[in-house]
Structures are given as C-alpha cells and as structure tokens.
Design a protein around this nucleic acid. Sequence first.
DNA 1: CCTACCGATCGGTAGG
DNA 2: CCTACCGATCGGTAGG
Lengths: 197, 197
Amino acid sequence: MDHAEQTRSQILAAAHQFFIDQGYHATSMRQIAAQAGIALGTIYNHFPSKEAIFKVIFLERHPYHDVLPLLGQAQGETPEAFVRNAAQLMLKALQARPDFLNLLFIEHVEFKGLHAEELLASILPQGVQLINDFIRNRRAVRPFPPAILLWSFLSLFISYYLGEIILDRAHLLEFDESAFEYFIAIYLHGILTGEAS
Amino acid sequence: MDHAEQTRSQILAAAHQFFIDQGYHATSMRQIAAQAGIALGTIYNHFPSKEAIFKVIFLERHPYHDVLPLLGQAQGETPEAFVRNAAQLMLKALQARPDFLNLLFIEHVEFKGLHAEELLASILPQGVQLINDFIRNRRAVRPFPPAILLWSFLSLFISYYLGEIILDRAHLLEFDESAFEYFIAIYLHGILTGEAS
DNA sequence: CCTACCGATCGGTAGG
DNA sequence: CCTACCGATCGGTAGG
C-alpha cells in the first residue's frame, strides 16, 4: 500500500467512526481531517465530496460483507442444527459490528435510501441461492416461499439484536442470552413440521 | 388553544416533518421557522433550543402513542384470531406513520439513545400488562416467558415493515400483502402447540 | 408589566 | 499534501 492509499484508508477509517458515532450531517470534514492527521484540503485530493466518502463506506466497507457470507459457512445435520448454527454465527458477527445498523439508519434517514438499491442488488441473489440450497437439502420444512424463509430468518436475529440494544439502553438487561434461544425455538416451530427431519 | 399554543404547535409540526425527512442535524432552525410561518427568533420564545424541540416530538408526539394502544383493542376468540387481528391493526397503523422508525433512528444515531430510556419506561409496563392478559385468557400457547412473547410479536411486524421498506426501495415489490400472512403463520406455528385452542 | 413577535446581527463553522 | 480563503449558512441572541 503506497502513501496515497494509506491516506485514503485513514480518511475512510476516520469518517466511518464519526459517521456511526454522530451521523452524517453532524460530522464535519474538519473532524475527519484532524482524526486522519491531514489538512482539510487534502481530503479533496482523495474524494470529490463528503457524500462520496459515505458512499464508499456504505458500499465497500459495510459489515454485511463480513456477516452475510457466514450463512454459507453454517453447518448442521438437521434443519434445527443448521438454523441454530447459522443464527449463532450471524448474531455473533452482528454484535461485533454495531456499525451494521448505524450505517443502514444513516442511509435510510439522511439519504432516503439513495445508495441502498445498489447494495441490495448485490446481496439478494446470494441470499436466494443460500435459501434454495437449504430447502433442497432438508426435509420437514413447511412449504413457505424461499423469499419468506430468508426474510423471516434475517428478521429473527435482526429483531433479537434490535431488542437487545433497546433493552440495554433502558437498563433492563435482566435477561441473558437464553432469550435468543427462545427466538430460535419460535422460528423453528414456525417453519418446521412436527415430523422428524 | 390561544395564539401562543397555536404557534408552538406549528413549530412542532414543521420540525417533525423536517426531522423525519432529513434527519436532525440536516434540519436548520431557519427551515423550521419558515415552514411555521414565523421569524427565526420567535422559535426561542417557545423552545430554549433545537434539541428541546426534538425531545418534545420524540417523547410526546411519537407514533407509539397511537400504535401500541391498538394491541389492547385487538379482539378474537382464539389465539390465532387475536394475533392475526392485533398484527393487522398494528401494521396498518405503522404503515400510516412512517415517522415511527425515522424518529427511532434519529434518536439512535444522532442522540445515542439519550431520550429513549424515558420513552421505554412508559411503554414497557403497558406491554407486559397486555401480554399477561393474553396468556391468562388463552390456551394452547407454548410456555415462553411473557417478555419473549411480546418481544417476538413486536418483532414480527417490525421485521415485516422493515422488509417492505427495503424491498420497495430495491424495486423488488413482486410480492403482495400475502407475505404478511406468511409471517403471521410462522409466528403462530412458533408460539402455539398443535392442540386445538 | 405581560405576551408574542420583529429585523438585524452575534460569534463560529459549514462544504468546497 | 498544505495554507489560505470563498459564499452561505449554522444555532442562538441582541434591543425594542
């Protein structure tokens, strides 16, 4: 990595941190420059605008690049084992990257989903492929449309994660991680027939 | 309502609209004043600061004041009918108030949940009361903790609503409202035993 | 002495 | 990669 790339990388890292901490409009180019250890004007030698920085972060450095592929790595003999394993893997990855939701929120509120279409177009085919593999190789899954199975699975742990944030903020964390086990149980009862797998 | 109250109300309405459209920091006091039809300085005769305006909107005018009480109005002989009815009522209310999520997002990203604790403290007891009534009066519900049942129910349609927004933005709306029926079905299979209710 | 509100401007900072 | 700036606009406040 030459010096120019290094500087560009430092700008992205600094901006990423400020964006998820404060939001897009609350972050100034001067903050980013100071954190990156460069002068304000130097940023514009690497990026044409503030929005261009956000776009690169949102499209190329979004945690989904680390989190979603874990679905493909999940293993398990039975559908129960597979779902449990996949859910645990993804929740762990999500908890390690709290910027996952912040970037989506900024995109939703401050950009009205301007860049989201591009991101989704690259995610969706991967997701559909994964769920088709899941259905083809497993028995005892109720005949829901594949898109519904994927959507509801992602909802499963996104919802759990949202609730965790909310309850944490309200200082109501008298629940432990067993709550997530309940969520998985509800989902499994929901999509599987009573028959043995 | 005297003239002062009317002006205050117009400030809140204008700020509310700009906040959910643009975010908090992207909205200027001048925009709010212009939309309310008053001079900038006049705002400060009604509110001490920009943040004070957001706080009033978030705590007193948040759509949850309209959406959550619908849970108490839901009816149905069986658990299936009750959940279906409650879910439909709340989804309709949520779709009519797209500011529901935007205000939460602004609070999360731009205020780091500063005001959320106050809001949750008033919501949670209502929710727990509702779910306890549901369990007491119904049979055939699996023995999940009440908090899990409430949390997963709210997740049910928040997730559906999130997915709707995302798919709408990606111009992938080849699904119709039957998707929500699938979500309800998964949830009902998830929380109910196979026995007749 | 109150309220509601004005035109003008404060010290600083925004993105570029 | 920096210094030195720009037109404009920021949140908040002055006196009357």
